[in-house]
């Protein structure tokens, strides 16, 4: 018996896992905070062009997103392959933009209305025509702060 007892004393005790949940919870909270769930399922293909002079959009709640691109394959039989506008999770036309902007505006405190930015997420492979129409509509609606969404350019090796 004495033999057993001495052996147990020498052996290293098991590492306590009692704090493991806490550690995991910290990680969990971190990811919960930084997560931004994609609010709209994209119905158009968008591969934004590359650029180097980028500005980061700071406040997510002050940004509304306008997507422009060709419909994805699933919708091509219905909507064709010409570029379309997507607002929220629906296809839309230029005429729907003012209402969309207004809907977003009411969710923002009035003091911050001036800093609302429209993020244009536009596919790099479409032509300017539809983008121009959207820009004109934004100007008519008084939404002048616009962000052309782009990816960071990967520096080419020289």
């Amino acid at each position: 018996m004495a033999k057993f007892g001495s052996k147990r004393d020498k052996g290293t005790p098991a590492i306590s896992t009692a704090s493991l949940p806490d550690i995991i919870f910290i990680l969990l909270f971190f990811f919960m905070v930084i997560t931004k769930m994609r609010d709209a399922e994209l119905k158009v293909t968008i591969r934004t062009p590359e650029a180097s002079e980028l500005t980061k959009l700071e406040k997510k709640s002050l940004v509304n997103y306008l997507y422009i691109g060709r419909p994805i394959e699933k919708y091509q039989s219905l909507y064709g392959t010409r570029p379309r506008i997507q607002l929220g999770d629906k296809f839309a036309t230029v005429g729907d933009i003012p209402l969309f902007l207004e809907k977003h505006k009411v969710s923002v405190p009035e003091a911050q209305h001036a800093s609302i930015t429209s993020s244009l997420r536009v596919d790099g492979k479409i032509t300017m025509g539809i983008v121009q129409d959207v820009k004109t509509q934004l100007r008519k609606s008084g939404q002048l702060k616009v962000n052309y969404s782009a990816r960071t350019k990967v520096q080419a090796a020289e």
Partner: peptide, 28 residues
């Protein structure tokens, strides 16, 4: 349980990468 939640948020996370060229359009 925490792990499960953690993995869920890990998967759904898209680290905010919205960058772009900021412009100011002229008023209409």
């Amino acid at each position: 349980i925490a792990f499960l939640l953690l993995i869920f948020f890990l998967v759904t996370t898209t680290i905010a990468e919205d960058k772009g060229i900021l412009v100011k359009l002229p008023p209409w």
